[in-house]
């Protein structure tokens, strides 16, 4: 089990949230807060979530990503999911979310 790590960077236009470790029932709330924070207060034109270092993603993690995509749309920001590999990539493919997050 790897602790969830979250790093948020702001460029002029985008918010980039890099996630690592296990994104599961116990940790998904923290990512939800971080993504909310990235969209709050002067919303970026794009929200990029990088899952390259995520070792595990369960349905709670997927739910946070789906929710973030919806909120990004609400504030007029694009939502890009990138970098998933291993189990998280399989989970995205299995649930069809790889097509949704494109």
């Amino acid at each position: 089990m790897a602790d969830l790590t979250i790093r948020t960077e702001r460029t002029d236009s985008d918010a980039i949230v890099s996630v690592g470790g296990d994104l599961d029932y116990d940790s998904h709330g923290r990512l939800e807060q971080a993504l909310d924070a990235a969209l709050d207060g002067g919303p970026p034109s794009g929200l990029v979530v990088d899952l390259a270092d995520v070792t595990y993603c369960d349905s709670c993690g997927l739910r946070v990503l789906l929710g973030a995509q919806a909120r990004a749309r609400d504030v007029g920001a694009t939502f890009v999911l990138q970098g998933a590999q291993g189990q998280p990539a399989r989970a995205l493919k299995l649930t069809g979310l790889d097509q949704v997050f494109g």
Partner: peptide, 13 residues
């Protein structure tokens, strides 16, 4: 056989 989440997306296939 594959398909998308149930209850997550209106346009799910």
């Amino acid at each position: 056989v594959a398909g998308m989440l149930v209850g997550g997306l209106r346009e799910a296939r």
